[in-house]
Simulated assay, not measured.
Amino acid sequence: MKTVKNQGQLLSERFEVAYNQVHDSLRNIVKINDDRFVVLVKVGAKKYQVIETFKKDLEQYARLRNAIVHEKMEVGFYIAEPNAKVVNHIEKIAGILSRPNYALTIASKKVVFFDDHDKILKVTEAIKEHGYSKFPIYKNKKCIGLLTSSSIVKWMSQNMENGLVNLADIRVSDIMKFEKDHPIDFVSKESNIFEVENIFEKFHSKKRKLECVIITENGSPEEKPLGVVTPWDLIEIDYTIE
């Protein structure tokens, strides 16, 4: 009987420790003046996919925590006890929030990019091979923007003769003149998922659509791209906990 009681106390203590870790992580991630747990969860879920994923669980854990802590009979004695499954789950959530993955873990690793002096036929071949529709373009080893397949089509429609278009001598720079501005940003390979989500959120708050975040060694547009994160990459993050 004593063993069961000690085990129950251990689960309750583990739950309280994990809950506090989650609370601290939410404060650091959400950064608002109101540090109430449920408010941090509600606000954070609107900005971060990972918090949205666990929103319902965290709200339930807040209620359970109130029952455990506020109805504690004495130090070390809990009137309510979570089961092992609940404790394991909140501990895993605490781990995810306190040690977020690097953005590079969700990025498209194979970045296909071109120099503005490359022939456009290299780009069309890449579209055929990879199915990509947007490519970072570099000039003098510095990223100057994105080239999209829609701009290639637009250029072709304006340079067609008798239903035909000759791309043999056309360079990327020729098409870039038709390209509109596509906002992009850069982060270092040490950046985490929350930092990248913050960048997208800042652009969104200014009513600008950020096309992608390019990851480089130190976050410089003059460095080789190591990965690319798009809004879809953030949406499709799998935070499923078994």
Rank of each mutant, 00 (worst) to 15 (best):
M1E: 07
T3V: 14
T3F: 14
V4W: 12
K5I: 11
N6E: 14
N6T: 05
Q7G: 02
Q7K: 14
S12I: 06
S12D: 08
F15Q: 07
A18S: 15
A18V: 11
A18I: 12
N20Q: 08
N20I: 00
Q21K: 15
V22T: 10
V22M: 11
D24H: 11
D24E: 11
N28L: 04
V30H: 08
V30F: 04
D35C: 06
R36Q: 09
R36S: 07
V39G: 03
K42E: 15
G44K: 00
A45C: 06
Q49V: 03
E52A: 13
D57W: 10
D57C: 07
L58W: 06
R63A: 09
A67V: 08
I68F: 10
H70N: 04
M73I: 09
M73G: 01
E74G: 03
V75E: 15
F77L: 05
Y78A: 05
I79V: 09
I79Q: 13
E81T: 11
E81Q: 06
P82C: 03
P82W: 02
V86M: 09
V87S: 12
E91I: 03
G95S: 08
I96E: 02
S98L: 01
N101Q: 15
L104Y: 09
A107P: 10
S108W: 02
K109I: 00
V112P: 00
D115T: 10
H117W: 07
H117S: 15
K122W: 04
K122D: 12
T124M: 07
E125Q: 12
A126M: 00
I127Q: 01
K134N: 12
F135C: 00
P136K: 03
I137Q: 10
K139Q: 13
K141I: 00
S151F: 02
S151N: 10
S157C: 12
Q158M: 11
Q158L: 12
V165F: 14
L167E: 01
A168N: 15
D169I: 06
I170M: 07
D174H: 08
D174I: 00
E179F: 06
K180W: 04
H182G: 01
P183L: 08
I184H: 01
F186D: 11
V187T: 13
V187N: 14
S188I: 03
E195W: 04
E197P: 05
E197N: 02
V213T: 11
V213W: 10
I215N: 15
N218S: 13
N218V: 04
P221S: 11
L226Y: 09
G227P: 13
V229N: 09
D233K: 04
L234Q: 03
I235C: 04
E236H: 03
T240I: 02
